[in-house]
């Protein structure tokens, strides 16, 4: 029973240069509703795969300067492209339910996982993923341009980022 006509195809121009695999424990106690006697506790674990890289649609003709066998490229700053919490990587590790309480429903567990997803999104940049993505993008594009015959390759990010020289 599929909902038809909702599929939409979109074109992208993203070069993903790094993938971080992240683990997180989801911990919750349900004892905040005053008229419910007893509490419920749950521990879940999940794994998220986060990809980051550079959006090539932001690369303009004036960002590339060529002088004989020298090339200089100003790449857009790295961004996070996707966060994927695969169903296989979600587990309930432990739960304790008071005798007067009902078990956690699947919808409640999914709602808690959804909160965990929000927490991962808000803390992912602190892992340094964007710096790694830029460093890998420099290496890959630099190597590719050298394979095309350029002897001196100069790659920068945005206007103010430090220069990465790949001679």
């Amino acid at each position: 029973m599929a909902v038809d006509n909702v599929l939409q195809l979109k074109e992208l121009s993203e070069l993903a240069t790094v993938e971080y695999t992240i683990t997180k424990i989801i911990k919750a106690s349900d004892d905040q509703t005053w008229y419910k006697i007893g509490d419920r506790k749950i521990l879940m674990s999940c794994q998220a795969v986060v990809k980051a890289g550079i959006d090539l649609s932001k690369l303009k003709a004036e960002d590339i300067t060529i002088n004989e066998d020298e090339i200089s490229v100003v790449l857009p700053k790295a961004t996070i492209f996707s966060l994927n919490i695969r169903p296989e990587d979600i587990r309930t590790e432990y739960q304790e339910v008071g005798i007067l309480r009902s078990d956690f429903t699947a919808a409640e567990r999914n709602q808690m996982m959804s909160q965990g997803e929000t927490q991962i999104r808000s803390s992912i940049e602190s892992t340094g993923i964007l710096q790694t993505a830029e460093s890998n993008a420099s290496l890959f594009i630099g190597q590719f341009l050298r394979q095309l015959g350029y002897k001196k390759v100069d790659i920068r990010f945005g206007n103010n980022s430090p220069k990465t020289n790949l001679n």
Partner: peptide, 24 residues
């Protein structure tokens, strides 16, 4: 039910060069 704030742990870092061109 509100979950507690817990840290994230990096398990693995992998280098990629994936040119993503279409999304459905």
């Amino acid at each position: 039910v509100q979950i507690d704030e817990t840290p994230i742990l990096i398990k693995n870092i992998k280098e990629l060069a994936e040119l993503t061109t279409m999304v459905s």
